[in-house]
């Protein structure tokens, strides 16, 4: 792979997801995206996106049917940058309670749970959580966003969310960003080594979201060259 070539991004197509907006965002920052469920194409990519809109159980069933579960786990273990978005983030966890208990990809220890009657200042909040909400750095010494794709994002930046469930990683150390909905503060972004995941949709979050894609492209380029 030559250093000057575009970053090849595989957008995993498992028949559930906002594939086209992810592809448009990749194009915008100069990546060469391919929407695919072909194992070889995914294995050849510099950066792998696992998008997703829909139900957790259906998503895992589709990934199993396409025989993508183990290849994705192997690529993640081999250090390939893997980016989960929305449902794609939730799939990285151990299990979900969405319509029964489902096994996830188990790349990140923890579980996925539903918002329980969230309450806002004006009364009960709607579920799904749809709209723009702020992302915050977790309180820890130093800057947890330094060196990550969020380095270019302002503290408290608004991002676009659509979800009823959220990830609860077991290790708080993997939490990259937090967001408050009613009285619940949930993990809105996580990072574990080469795995990045966002509960919000950077590709639908205007300029700030596209800046995250540019950082992901830079990260993949560095990974390819190292």
């Amino acid at each position: 792979m030559s250093g000057g070539a575009s970053v090849r991004a595989a957008i995993v197509d498992y028949a559930l997801g906002n594939l086209y907006s992810v592809a448009h965002a990749c194009h915008q920052v100069g990546m060469a995206p391919e929407i695919t469920n072909d194992r070889a194409a995914i294995a050849a990519a510099d950066l792998i996106f696992l998008p997703g809109v829909g139900a957790f159980g259906d998503a895992m069933a589709n990934l199993r049917r396409l025989d993508l579960v183990n290849p994705l786990k192997d690529l993640a273990a081999a250090g390939r940058p893997l980016v989960g978005i929305c449902l794609g983030m939730q799939l990285m966890l151990g299990q979900s309670h969405e319509f029964g208990l489902h096994q996830g990809l188990e790349l990140v220890a923890g579980e996925v749970v539903r918002f329980q009657n969230p309450l806002g200042p004006r009364g009960p909040l709607k579920v799904p959580h749809v709209g723009w909400n702020r992302i915050h750095r977790p309180a820890e010494p130093g800057d947890p966003w330094a060196g990550t794709p969020l380095a270019v994002v302002a503290e408290g930046q608004y991002m676009y969310f659509v979800h009823s469930f959220y990830a609860k990683p077991r290790d708080p150390g993997v939490i990259l960003a937090k967001t408050r909905y009613g009285e619940v503060e949930f993990c809105s972004a996580l990072r574990q080594g080469n795995i990045f995941a966002f509960q919000f949709h950077p590709e639908r979050s205007a300029a700030a979201g596209i800046a995250i894609y540019a950082e992901l492209a830079a990260l993949a380029r560095r990974g390819r060259e190292s």
Partner: peptide
């Protein structure tokens, strides 16, 4: 629109 406008 979708190619250049990054909101839902």
């Amino acid at each position: 629109t979708a190619r250049e406008i990054f909101i839902p």
